[in-house]
């Protein structure tokens, strides 16, 4: 009898704690949900606007999005988001998400903005785990290096770091990171060139 009572007592204590805990989480979720979605959207928009100048498009970039996958040129077998810029309904450029699979410490996720002809408008790093103080100079907060891509296009050649005979600086003490980023941007441009018609013609993905 005593055993049974103990069992009931412990089980009810656990149940009550679980219910109250879940309620707390659920209420906080409800209260903060809209603000969190807003923040995430703002952050995405901010980055998108950095690689796609506002005067080049008049559509909502974050809503005109498709997903395409290319395991070598886009660096990952997973579908990558492509945001399409349009001016007066005509395609004017695209922002491609891509991954540099060969960073010094894992994958580097990038956004590459290109105009219609395939010229780079801007590149931003979304996430990485490169060495602080060395490889993290690919962040725009830390150095201006990432802006050196703007204005370049495939036709020019020289898509490598200077140590490999290319036109982009490496960092003192860190060559692997910039090499991976240069390679990823180069591959993204190749992907864009090969798939340009599809990029603009594919039906947009369902609203997310």
């Amino acid at each position: 009898m005593e055993m049974k009572q103990l069992l009931i007592k412990t089980m009810s204590a656990l149940t009550i704690a679980a219910v109250i805990g879940a309620a707390l989480v659920a209420i906080t979720y409800q209260v903060t949900r809209a603000q969190i979605a807003h923040n995430e959207r703002e952050t995405l928009l901010r980055v998108l606007n950095e690689v796609m100048p506002p005067n080049l498009h008049d559509n909502e970039l974050s809503e005109d999005v498709i997903e395409m996958a290319h395991s070598t040129l886009l660096g990952s077998p997973e579908p990558q988001a492509i945001y399409r810029a349009r001016l007066n309904g005509q395609p004017s450029g695209a922002v491609l998400s891509t991954t540099a699979p060969n960073g010094y410490n894992g994958r580097i996720k990038l956004l590459v903005g290109v105009d219609l002809a395939g010229k780079v408008l801007g590149v931003r790093v979304l996430s990485h785990q490169e060495t602080p103080g060395l490889g993290d100079n690919i962040e725009v907060k830390r150095s201006n290096w990432i802006n050196s891509f703007a204005g370049h296009s495939l036709a020019e050649g020289g898509w490598a770091v200077k140590r490999d005979g290319g036109m982009f600086d490496q960092f003192t003490g860190a060559t692997i990171t910039p090499r991976a980023v240069v390679q990823a941007v180069f591959n993204t441009l190749k992907f864009y060139k090969q798939n340009r018609d599809q990029v603009y013609q594919a039906a947009p993905a369902a609203a997310q």
Binding site: L24, V25, T28, I36
Partner: peptide
């Protein structure tokens, strides 16, 4: 359970604000 719930709530609050 208590600690996990509070941590999740604080995480969401920081994410929001």
């Amino acid at each position: 359970l208590i600690i996990a719930s509070f941590v999740t709530a604080v995480e969401m609050a920081i994410k929001a604000f």
